[in-house]
Simulated assay, not measured.
Amino acid sequence: MVHRFILNETSFFGPGARKELPGAIRGLGKSKVLVVTDKGLLQFGVTKMVTDVLDEAGIAYDIFSEVKPNPTVSNVKAGIDAFKRAQADILVAIGGGSSIDTAKAIGIVIANPDFSDIISLEGCAPTQNKSVPIIALPTTAGTAAETTINYVIIDEEKQKKMVCVDPNDIPAVAIIDAELMYSLPKGLTAATGMDALTHAIEGYITKGAWELSDMFEIEAIRMISRYLPMSVSDPKNPEGRNGMAVAQYVAGMAFSNVGLGLVHGMAHPLGALFDIPHGVANAVLLPTIMEFNMPYCITKYRHIAEAMGIDTSSMNDNEAAQAACDAVKQLSQMVGIPATLTELGITDENIPALTRQALDDVCTPGNPRPVTYDEVANIYRSLL
């Protein structure tokens, strides 16, 4: 079998790494920036931490700050219009997955105008040209959108999340600066951190996993187990923040290339239909779906348990696998994630619509265990 691995051309890591931005822009031969961000980051001065660097370097920019927490088709179209009005030639995305995903869709359509309806980008669209260059500066430690070939946009008409997978969309440069994450609230730190753990675990057990991706994912699990509680309990702890910033990137490097599974397949409808934060949805689903998948992943679950600090030497395979599921559940509870879907407003009458979308989701086929409609519905129901 031939395996493909796509990564950024260049990445910078470490507190203060945003200062590399001007050199990265000039190195790409560009001069006019459209900054893609959201109003919250503008309000709390996080965007300014980056635009100050542009100001000091004398680089011209306009700001598009209309990014929604779950970006939509119309949101992307507004960003495309903003890029054209600005006469920009490069995108700088500042934010979590929403800002970076919006920038990816903008950049792809500018370079591939045949896809200007946006909805034709769903799945593996046959785009011909690389995106307008994107430099991504994440402000959350979760999505790893800065290093993936995936992005997610909501089709408002169908009320569904479109998962788009396109090697042409990967940011040219990723700048991982933990200082941009210090103001992230505890709840969002926990949710995005559990999103990163879900990426690592699903990327480790997905059907497409192999030796290179396994190496990254098991290290990401180890790092997240260590640094997430530290980041939640002490948000300004440099060790915790930088550790999580790197860990989520490591997880993203791998899952972007091998795929995910049922947790994401079932989480996407929760976001599309009920606007539940993606990391929270993943965290609620993850332990239960791990137990569902356990018979197909026994050996790998032992490795997950060990990466999370559990001594499995006296356990049989089933005990070690259950210990991995329990460790994930305990970590989720420790950082304050809700335990049930009922707490998120989901009722039994919502399950049919959620189940239909989950079965159609592009991530679900990567699950190590095949699933039926009734099994997916029962998983949702068990978490009410």
Rank of each mutant, 00 (worst) to 15 (best):
Y227I: 02
E239H: 12
D234P: 00
A220W: 07
L188H: 10
L188E: 10
S213P: 04
W210N: 15
A220F: 05
M181N: 01
I201Y: 00
D195I: 10
A245P: 02
V246A: 10
I221S: 00
A245F: 05
A247R: 06
S225K: 12
S233P: 05
V246T: 14
T189I: 05
R241Y: 00
M215S: 15
D195Q: 10
N242V: 08
V250S: 10
S231E: 00
L197E: 03
P235H: 03
G243R: 00
H199K: 12
I221H: 04
A209R: 14
P229L: 10
P229C: 11
E217H: 14
S231L: 00
K207C: 11
R241S: 02
M244P: 01
V232C: 02
A190T: 05
A247M: 06
A251N: 06
W210S: 14
I218K: 05
Y204L: 09
E217N: 15
A196C: 10
R241A: 00
A251I: 06
M215G: 13
I224Y: 04
G193S: 06
D234I: 00
L188N: 04
F216V: 11
Y227L: 04
W210V: 13
E202M: 08
Y249Q: 11
E217P: 06
T198K: 05
M215F: 14
E217Y: 07
M194H: 05
A200R: 13
Y249K: 10
S213V: 10
I224F: 02
D214K: 14
E217D: 14
P238F: 04
T198C: 13
A200F: 05
S225V: 03
A245N: 04
T206D: 08
S183E: 08
A209N: 12
Y249N: 11
N237V: 01
A196T: 06
I221Q: 03
L188Q: 13
E211M: 14
R226G: 01
V232I: 07
T206M: 06
W210C: 14
P235M: 05
A191T: 03
V232A: 01
Y204T: 08
G203L: 06
A251C: 08
G208E: 08
S225H: 12
T192W: 00
Y227D: 08
A245S: 13
T192C: 05
A190K: 00
V232Q: 01
G240V: 02
A196Y: 04
M215L: 13
Y182R: 08
V250Q: 11
Y227E: 02
M215I: 13
M194K: 07
T189L: 09
L212V: 15
E239G: 12
I218Q: 06
F216W: 13
A247H: 02
E219I: 11
R241C: 00
A200N: 08
Q248D: 08
A200K: 11
Y182F: 14
A251R: 09
S183H: 09
G208K: 11
S213L: 07
M181F: 01
G240D: 03
G187H: 07
I218E: 04
M181W: 03
M215A: 15
R222E: 09
I201K: 07
K207N: 11
V246L: 15
G193I: 01
S233T: 12
I218P: 12
G203K: 08
R241M: 02
L212T: 15
V232M: 00
A191G: 04
Y204M: 06
Y249V: 15
N237F: 03
L228R: 04
S213A: 15
R222N: 13
E211H: 14
A191I: 07
A247W: 05
G240M: 00
K186D: 03
